[in-house]
Every structure is written in C-alpha cells, then in structure tokens.
Computed example of a mutant assay.
Amino acid sequence: MSDTYNELLQQFRLQILTAGEAGSSLRIQGGASKSWYGNPEAGDILDTHPYRGVISYEPTELYITARAGTPLCEIEDLLAQHGQMLAFEPPHFGANATIGGMVAAGLSGPRRATHGALRDFVLGVSMMNGKGEFLRFGGQVMKNVAGYDVSRLMAGSLGSLGLLLDITLKVMPRPACETSLTFAMSEQDALHVLNLWAGQALPISASSYHAGRLLVRLSGSESALRLAKQKLGGLELPQMELFWQSLREHQHHFFIPEDGLALLRVSLPSTAPALKIKAKSLIEWGGAQRWLWTHEPIPTLREQVQAMGGHLTQFRYADPTQAIFTPLSAPLLNIHQQLKKSFDPASVFNRGQLFS
C-alpha cells in the first residue's frame, strides 16, 4: 500500500479515536448519494472519498477488490470492458455513488429476485472498528468467533458497525441478449403469473407491475429468449434498457414525490396477495418488493404487512413522527446491540442512523 493510503488510514484512525475520547459521533460519507436514507445523521463527516481505486481485478476468477471511496460508475465501466457486471444491479441515486456507500446501504436493483442480493456477492471486507483497529474478514466465508459472516453483516448496516476500507465482490458475465415483454392484467393476476413463472425454467431477470401493465425482462442466450417469448406471449419491447435503469434509479414517473407522503417500501413473500388499501403502487421482484404512496396510517400498514410475513420501511420523504425501519423484536434487538457494542463500543459511527 502506498504512503498516501497509509496516511489516509492513519487520519481515519486518529479521527475515530478522537471522536471516541470526546464522546462524539462521526458520519461516514463517500459520495453522499444516499445520505437521505435512514434516520437523520449527526456528527462530523469522516470523508472516505479520497480512499479510492481498484486494488485487484481478475476477470477469469470473477472477483474485484476496490477501496471504499471508489466511484461505483468506475467499477461498472471496468467490468463492462470485460463483459461482466455486478449482478445485483445496485442503484446509484447519484453520480457520486461509491462502492463503500453501495455496500453500507445494502440496496439491490431489478435483478435481485433472480440473481441474489448485494450481500450474496460480498466475498470479503477490511474495516476499521470504533477502537481504530484494522480488521479483515472474508474470502472463503471467514467468520468471527460469534459465528457471524462479518463481511456480509456490513451490507445494509449503514456504517453503524465500522468504517469500510476495502471490499471484494463476486462479479458475473453480462447476458448475451436481453429483451422485455409487456402484458395488460390486474394486480392479482400479475402476482399469480409471476409466482407461476418463478417455478419454471424461464430466463426472467426482472419484473415490474404498475397501473395495469406487467413488464418482464428476459436475459440469456438468443435461443433461450426465443423459446421464452413463444411460451409467455405478450408484446415484445426490445429497447428497454432506459426503462429498467429508470426503475433502478427511481427516475420512473411513479417515484415523483407525492405532497405530504412518504415513499414506502414493503417487503413481502412473493406469494402474498395484493394489499387491500387505497394506494398508488409499483411491484418488483416477482411480488416481493412493493412501493407505495398512500394516506393510510403507517402503524396500521405495518401491522398488516407484519401479519403477512413482511416489513415496511419509510424509504424516502419520511414522516418524522414514525419509525423509518420496522422496530426489531427483543431477540433481534439484543443481537444488534451486542454487535454494535463489539464493533463500536463508544457509538462513534453513524449514531442513530439505523436504530436509536
């Protein structure tokens, strides 16, 4: 590692130790493209943006290692040059998105239902804990003494456990061909056919249902797509890359803010029926992810969703009187608190952003 990066690590360590001694908190920030996500942030900024660059990339071995401040667009451009991709299709939500922020937010895009979530592709991480100690986890699912796969625990932790430094991700080949099919049907019928198709050998890589129209994306070989089109029917829409990108980045017209409303993300079993509420909705991931704009009270909705085996998050434009994330059960809260105490005993990192 060069002297410049060693100096940066020492600066990070000093900033962490100083905050711990003072009882203050730090906001870990790379590109700030997702700083709105979660509870309001407090504390001084710990800027990871200078700590950037690809450390190693082995296209034949299907992995890449990069520093946390590396722009996500640079990673994707490099992979594209070798016909590869991040299969979980992460949203950027801004031109300055970094790979560290991507992992910390833990968000996945349209391919998630068929290819897996971001955490499934995290092979290893190095990090700095709240004591300023340098830790490395991963490679071959290396676990700590408590039995947790720490590298994957960092996915979606919103920086609450430590400062991500280096990240190793599994990458995948890009599909040879892609096309999209559209169908006119009701929400209940869309949920039914999506679950029916999920049990069949079909090259579906994304789905979206909104305002009476179901869209599915097919990815694979030319012959696989031809057979799938014959089986599924529908109207073919071959040039839909911008649509799926708009869905991933929340640039689709559905995501235009509604005055006085929070954008709600509901995670449910894909087999769950249509929600019996008055709402504007968009459904992804074969029925497992549902976006809502509604005037229904959030506590009432949370109860309904939990009764169906799911959970609800105020994703954007949150109502400050309601919890952003679904409150944890007592056993899960105890695990969360023990993890926080182990990695960040002085509560230096992103205090309160995930849970109070």
Rank of each mutant, 00 (worst) to 15 (best):
G20S: 13
Q289R: 11
L215H: 09
S208L: 15
L263I: 03
A22G: 00
A201G: 00
F134T: 05
D77L: 06
E74A: 04
A228Q: 01
T313E: 14
Y37I: 12
D77H: 09
Q230S: 12
K231M: 07
Q140Y: 13
R136V: 12
L191F: 05
L8K: 07
R265F: 01
L354R: 06
G38P: 06
P238D: 11
T48P: 05
S329H: 07
E303C: 00
L163E: 02
R174M: 13
P299D: 09
V145W: 00
L17H: 02
G109M: 01
Y63Q: 12
V171T: 13
L268V: 11
Q230D: 12
D344T: 08
S347M: 06
Q15N: 09
A42N: 12
W36Q: 01
Q306D: 02
A68N: 04
G286C: 00
F183L: 09
P91I: 07
G199K: 09
Q353K: 14
A105Q: 08
L264T: 04
V150L: 03
L181G: 04
Q337R: 13
L123G: 09
F349M: 07
L282W: 04
A68C: 14
L268H: 06
Q251G: 12
E284H: 07
L312W: 07
T300Y: 02
A224H: 02
C177S: 10
A22W: 00
H252P: 02
E241D: 15
L339D: 07
A95Q: 11
N144K: 02
S157L: 06
P50M: 10
L8M: 14
G43D: 11
G287I: 03
V305K: 01
F255N: 05
I277P: 04
L135F: 06
E74Q: 11
Q338A: 14
D344W: 07
G124L: 05
H336Q: 14
D3I: 12
G234S: 05
L292H: 03
A224E: 15
Y51V: 00
W244A: 05
S221A: 08
L215Y: 06
L164K: 02
G352D: 08
S33T: 15
G139T: 06
F254T: 07
E249Y: 10
P327K: 08
T168W: 01
L9P: 01
L169T: 06
L26G: 00
Q188T: 15
T300R: 11
P203F: 03
L17M: 12
Q29C: 13
L339I: 03
E284D: 12
L275I: 10
H311P: 01
Q338T: 10
R112H: 03
E241S: 15
Q251V: 00
S151D: 11
R226Y: 10
M172H: 13
L215C: 05
A323L: 09
W197P: 02
A206I: 06
K231W: 05
F255I: 08
K280E: 15
S180W: 05
T271Q: 13
M154D: 05
V171R: 00
G69I: 04
Q314T: 04
P269I: 07
L164T: 02
L118E: 03
Y209K: 02
P269Y: 08
T98E: 08
L261Q: 15
N144V: 11
R226S: 14
Q84G: 10
K170N: 01
S356H: 13
A80Y: 09
F137A: 02
A19Y: 07
V193M: 03
E178V: 12
A176I: 06
A95D: 15
M240G: 08
